[in-house]
Amino acid sequence: MTYDLLRTLKLTTVFGNPGSTEQTFLQDFPEDFTYVLALQEASVIAMADAFAQVTRRPALVNLHSSAGVGNAVGNLVAAYHGNTPLIITSGQQHRELLIGEPYLGNREATTLPKPWVKWSYEPARAEDVPEAFMRAYAEALQPPAGPVYLSIPMDDWKRPLSGFTRVRAVSDRVAPDTERLRGFADRISASRRPALVFGPEVDRSGGWDAAVALAEKLRASVYGAPLLDRASFPENHALFRGPLGMSVKTISDRLAGHDLVVARGVVPHGRDAVGGRGCAQRLLGTVFSVRTGTLGWGRRGPHSSGGAMSWIRLDNTVNAARECPGRQAVMRGGSVCASCREPGGRHTRKASVG
Rank of each mutant, 00 (worst) to 15 (best):
S171F: 13
R180W: 05
G183S: 12
A211P: 02
F198L: 14
R187K: 15
I188S: 00
T178R: 14
L196C: 04
E216F: 10
D186N: 11
I188T: 02
L181D: 09
L214K: 03
L181R: 15
V197S: 04
R173L: 09
A215I: 09
V202L: 10
V174C: 12
G207M: 01
G206N: 03
R192Q: 11
F184D: 12
R193I: 03
A213L: 09
L181N: 09
G206K: 01
S189I: 10
L196F: 13
A190D: 12
D203R: 15
A185G: 12
R173C: 04
D172M: 09
L214N: 02
P176T: 08
R187I: 06
V212K: 03
G199F: 00
G199V: 01
R193N: 14
A175R: 15
D203V: 04
E216Y: 11
P176E: 05
A211K: 07
D177L: 04
L196Y: 05
A169W: 07
G206M: 01
G207D: 00
R180C: 06
G207P: 01
S171V: 05
F184Q: 03
A195S: 07
R204P: 03
A190C: 15
E216H: 09
R204M: 06
G206I: 00
V212D: 00
R173T: 15
